[in-house]
């Protein structure tokens, strides 16, 4: 077995600042997410985590900052802050999920997975012309798309309900489907916004397995916003801590856990009788 190549930088965030009118949601945040690593962004509510995501995926245009997405040579890096949202997914291959799940809830699970492969299929269907006449080129492409969907549905254990309406799935299954759908775009970087929110412990454990699988087998980078410290501390290779829109810590889970700034952020300045649950978990680690 060959030694796996060292992770290389995948996404470099430099001096990211996002201002809404007078409110500064994110200020001077810089960090690097490596390829084949799981990078977690944590921080108290309102720390600006989702805003960072929205800047990365083009839903907001950052006020200041450079977001460099490296690609496999010979392709040149892309600057995400200059791209339209759909191009970030399409060209820079950054896929994302949402805090409040966004599925095509009236469509079937399989259709959700097929829509995710839209651009590929669109080309194969000759921008619908080959498809309209039912040419074999398109039928082959569609079969391949179904195969990819089947692979991921199998992986997230949704294969039996593939023909259900997505909106009728139980909550945990909807979360898994959203991740599977994002993977169908064959991303280079997968951004997950609180994927463990609302999951029970067993489901959280499964999620951790899925994310490590994605990192190790599909060799892509994962960027993760998460409150569930049991997930973050187990699987992350690298943790970035935000508070009030600023980065206060950056390092391995072990380093971050003992960083006084982080503990202060979670505990608050005054000493409290009982530290919040998150901190207990943070301090306890995994």
């Amino acid at each position: 077995m060959t030694v796996p190549p060292k992770p290389t930088p995948l996404l470099e965030v430099e001096h990211l600042t996002m201002r809404f009118g007078g409110l500064i949601a994110v200020s001077e945040v810089s960090f690097t997410a490596m390829d084949r690593e799981i990078t977690a962004i944590i921080g108290p509510n309102g720390a600006g985590k989702t805003t960072v995501f929205n800047c990365l995926t083009g839903f907001y245009t950052p006020t200041v900052g450079r977001l460099t997405m490296h690609r496999k040579p010979p392709k040149t890096p892309l600057y995400l802050e200059r791209l339209e949202a759909y191009r970030i997914a399409h060209k820079a291959r950054v896929a994302r999920t949402f805090q409040n799940i966004r599925l095509f809830s009236g469509m079937s699970v399989l259709e959700n997975m097929i829509v995710a492969q839209h651009n590929k299929l669109m080309r194969a269907s000759g921008f619908s012309l080959a498809g309209l006449f039912g040419l074999p080129v398109y039928r082959r492409a569609e079969r391949a798309a179904v195969d990819l969907a089947r692979y991921w549905l199998d992986r997230v254990n949704l294969i039996d309900v593939a023909d259900w309406q997505a909106g009728n799935l139980p909550y945990g299954a909807q979360r898994r489907l959203e991740i599977a759908r994002a993977m169908c775009t064959e991303p280079a970087l997968l951004c997950l916004d609180e994927p463990a929110a609302g999951l029970n412990p067993r489901e959280s454990a499964e999620l951790s397995d899925l994310l490590t699988f994605i990192r190790d087998e599909h060799k892509i980078g994962v960027l993760l916003i998460e409150h569930d410290m049991s997930v973050v501390m187990t699987i992350s290779d690298h943790v970035v801590v935000l508070e009030y829109g600023r980065k206060i810590s950056d390092g391995t889970p072990a380093e971050v856990r003992v960083d006084p700034a982080v503990i202060r952020a979670y505990l608050g300045e005054e000493e409290e009788e009982t530290p919040p649950e998150a901190v207990q978990r943070l301090a306890g680690g995994a």
Partner: peptide, 8 residues
Amino acid sequence: GRPEIEKV
């Protein structure tokens, strides 16, 4: 008017 920000 204020620019409208799409809520995500």
